[in-house]
Every structure is written in C-alpha cells, then in structure tokens.
C-alpha cells in the first residue's frame, strides 16, 4: 500500500469486508442482545468503509465512488488484510477476529486522527471512538469464553490459535503511509497480552505469518464473499438504487 490512495483504499477495504462478515451474523447470534451488538459493530465498520472509499475515490480522481469501488472491483483489486475475509466460524472465531481487528484499528485511528491529511484525520477521529467500543466488546467476550466453561475455553483457545497468524500482516512496515503500521505493534501487543492473560489463554508461538492481502493476493474465501456482495449490483449495470 503506497501513497494516500492505496492507504485509504486498504483501510476502507478492511472495514468493508469486516462489515460484510459481521453482518452475516444477523439473526444467527447466540442471544438477541448480541444480534443487536454485532449489527451495530457491522454498521460502524460499514460507515467507516463508506467514508474511506469515498475519499479514496476522490484521491484517485478517476470518477469512482464508494459503490464503484465496492461493487465493481474483483478480488485481485481488493486491498483488505486476510484477517477480515476469513469465514466467521463459530462465535469464538468471530470474537477472536473482532478483538484483534479492534486492537489494531483503535491505535491506528487514534494516530490517524492527528495526521496531516485533514480528511483522514476527521475519519480517524470519528472511527476511533467506535473502535474503542468494538475493542471493549471483543475483549469482554474473549474473557467470558476463555474463562467460562471448559468447552468455551477450548473453543476460544482454538480460535486464537487459528486467527493469530493473520495479525502479522497488519503490521508490515510502510514508512511512506500516513501512519506506518509497524509503529502500532507495541500498543497492539500490550493490549492483546493483557486480555489473553485475564482470559486464561495462551498466545501462540510466532511462526507461519500469511500475507498478501495488501497486494491483492487473497485467500480462497474472498472471491465467494464478493460474488455474493456484488451479484445484484453487477446484474444491473449503471442502475440507481
């Protein structure tokens, strides 16, 4: 991700794909309150995605608006991290993904709120408040599941083990970006370690670290997600909705 366009696009894609996955939970959550909470977080992510993609379109200057960027790009053109496109799995996997994503987005948006680009700063200022809520919600469930029953502990540990390798991609150095992701690692690691400890969970050893999302080289899951998301828009070229 190079330059302001690529940066805004990558962040917008993270938020958009995260929203799409979270919204899949609607009507399926373990309790009704959680249906409301997950839809709420999905809406926040979607809101941030719309601001970021609209701005990316302006920076690109090729006449693409938020919908052109969301619905008319193929998976090789998407710049989201792999973490957000992973399938929802069980509730523990979803909470592991949400927790890691929020622990990354909160310091990211916080730093962004002070950056020189006024538009990005405004987006960061709005989104960081929402991220703080997402992190709180994710942390609470990681603790509840980790330190709940034997069954929930087993599932939460399995979810952390499954998802952890994908966090490394989030912090790949990019000194030219408005916020260099590498500078966020210490904050992320401290937050994550504290919650995992309290949840009686162990952090996996460093090892396999899949990446490629920022270059448009995704997992096999993204194409299916886009096929569903884009089907109606693509079936009616040029239509207004």
């Amino acid at each position: 991700m190079t330059g302001p366009f690529g940066f805004a696009l990558a962040l917008g894609d993270d938020a958009l794909i995260a929203a799409q996955r979270l919204a899949e939970w609607t009507t399926r959550a373990p309790e009704m309150e959680e249906d409301v909470a997950l839809a709420n977080i999905a809406l926040d992510q979607l809101g941030a995605a719309r601001l970021l993609l609209s701005y990316a379109g302006e920076l690109e200057g090729a006449g693409r608006d938020e919908d052109a960027l969301a619905f008319l790009r193929d998976d090789r053109e998407f710049r989201n991290c792999l973490l957000v496109e992973l399938p929802n799995g069980d509730f523990a996997v979803t909470m592991a993904k949400l927790f890691f994503l929020a622990a990354y987005q909160l310091p990211l948006y916080t730093v962004l709120a002070g950056c020189a680009d006024e538009r990005l700063a405004a987006i960061g200022a709005k989104a960081r408040k929402e991220s703080a809520y997402h992190l709180d919600h994710g942390s609470l469930w990681v603790k509840r599941l980790g330190d709940g029953t034997e069954e929930s502990h087993r599932r939460m540990q399995a979810a952390v083990d499954q998802v952890w390798p994908y966090v490394h991609e989030l912090f790949a150095p990019d000194p030219a970006a408005p916020v260099d992701p590498a500078t966020l690692w210490a904050d992320f690691e401290a937050r994550v370690a504290a919650v995992l400890d309290e949840a009686t969970l162990t952090r996996p050893e460093a090892g396999w670290a899949p990446a490629g999302g920022r270059d448009g080289v995704h997992t096999e899951h993204l194409s299916f997600l886009l096929a569903e998301m884009q089907v109606l828009h693509r079936a009616h070229p040029g239509a207004n909705w």
Partner: peptide
C-alpha cells in the same frame, strides 16, 4: 447482497 453501500447500511440499521 444489498445493491449499494447506502442501502446496505439502511437495511442493516432497520434489522437492528
């Protein structure tokens, strides 16, 4: 499958 991001946001908010 909502056909625009605006419609997706409105529908999500409605179901919520």
């Amino acid at each position: 499958r909502a056909p625009s991001l605006k419609r997706k946001a409105i529908l999500l908010a409605k179901v919520q």
